[in-house]
Design a binder for these strands. Structure first.
Lengths: 244, 244
DNA sequence: TATGGTTGTCTATATCAATAGACATTTAAA
DNA sequence: TTTAAATGTCTATTGATATAGACAACCATA
């Protein structure tokens, strides 16, 4: 855990800065030899803060389920992961990370119909106000939430996609049933921001966490747009990989 | 500026949360009609905080040069930008964003020689301990720092690249002089984290800001790796675009 | 079983963040 | 010129954050 100092009077509490740093170190494998975080006194010395401040940071990580303190022994690492998420023509949620976890699942959060906004109409190359199916899903890996996505589909072709998705649990399969045997990722935009309230709830994040946001367009093999989606990933659980 | 409430007792000061939210709104164009942020009293009402807390947030944004308060008139928006940064086979710093800004520049921060670590050797397909040229650069758009990058080149082929880069200001040109007429991006990995101390200094960020990190490998047309680089972008100034 | 190392809890204090209110200063518009 | 609306500044107070020290409880090991 290299030397960057933590910063005071920045509006970000010391315990939160330290919690974030320790989380990164855990994911980086810095404590793999022992499977434990260094003793509180050692961390206090290292970060130049009081032991109580370290305890606040570790309590936050324990709340996330990342560490578990055991009196008399130390603070054990419970979980660490950052899934590698390939982005390519064939980007799909489950395929890419299938070999990194035991189980991937995609569950529906909500569905609905809405008229195409100017932005959505532009992306999907349809008229403003055209009917769309909106599908909100939660992506999970080994029962831990990884991403939440909102997708829009032209309702004239895919009016039934929400229903089919609910039964199959797969957008790829739903597309297939609706006469789209294959589809490709046309463009992906990536940004990052702080987690909002919904992110905290759905992705089980702690306040101040970072989400990576992708805005993506999928088209069928005739280059007709079939799906536009905005996905929000827990940044400390994923990395994106773009291969050319 | 939609409804997510700000959160108390999370280790992130209210003024910082609010400053981040207002920055996003500005970049999103929410206040383009007036070119001004809403009055402090209105923001205080909207966020449910005291006016002084809003003033702390606006003071932070003023420090970043994003807004400028004018007594009697209001708080003017000085600058907003989020450069779109294409990632493809032909990923280069200046080309991609050249049409979005008046001037792009890449300046050297530091150079040096070092032996290849296990990780660098694996990426560049050379032997561990082989000599490398390390080049640290700062990417600027319209005189505002956008990214800082550390690149490694095999020293046997590119021992002089730092020197040539210093005179030409372009890695592409330096490659050309060294017998590499063209090169392509093989893989790009993207992660996000909080800005560290060096980021704050080099990228002129405020504490708690987010950096997008790319780890990328470039190869020549014979598929021989020529450059491995780790770049850190100010997340509120860029978006990545991947076209397939 | 004795000991050293570790986490858990308590009290006290200092500093920062946020709230509250009042009033001054500046600007734009009536 | 007047007025309303906006930012600038000040004082006072409260609550959260961080520091400091002491000691209890617990665990692994010699």
């Amino acid at each position: 855990m290299a030397g960057q100092k933590i910063q005071r009077q920045t509006g970000v509490a010391l315990w939160r800065q330290i919690a974030d740093r320790i989380r990164v170190s855990i994911n980086h494998g810095d404590f793999d030899e022992t499977g434990m975080v260094p003793p509180e006194t050692a961390l206090a010395l290292q970060f130049g803060v009081n032991r109580h401040t370290i305890r606040s940071a570790l309590a936050a990580l324990a709340q996330e389920g990342i560490v578990r303190a055991v009196q008399g022994r130390g603070t054990l690492i419970e979980r660490k992961e950052r899934l590698s998420f390939p982005i390519s023509k064939r980007t799909r949620f489950s395929q890419g990370i299938g070999d990194q976890v035991r189980e991937t699942r995609s569950v529906p959060l909500a569905t609905g119909e809405e008229a195409a906004s100017a932005e959505l109409a532009r992306q999907l190359k349809i008229k403003i106000g055209a009917p769309l199916v909106r599908l909100e899903t939660l992506g999970q890996a080994d029962h831990r939430p990884v991403s939440r996505a909102t997708s829009w589909f032209p309702a004239d072709r895919f009016g039934a996609i929400a229903e089919i998705y609910r039964t199959t649990g797969s957008i790829t399969k739903a597309f297939r049933e609706l006469g789209v045997p294959d589809y490709v990722r046309v463009i992906t935009e990536i940004t990052a921001t702080h987690a909002d309230e919904s992110d905290l709830a759905d992705l089980q994040l702690s306040p101040g966490a970072i989400v990576l946001i992708t805005q993506a367009l999928n088209s069928d093999l005739d280059n007709v747009p079939v799906q536009y989606s905005i996905s929000r990933f827990a940044a400390d659980r994923v990395r994106f990989t773009i291969e050319n």
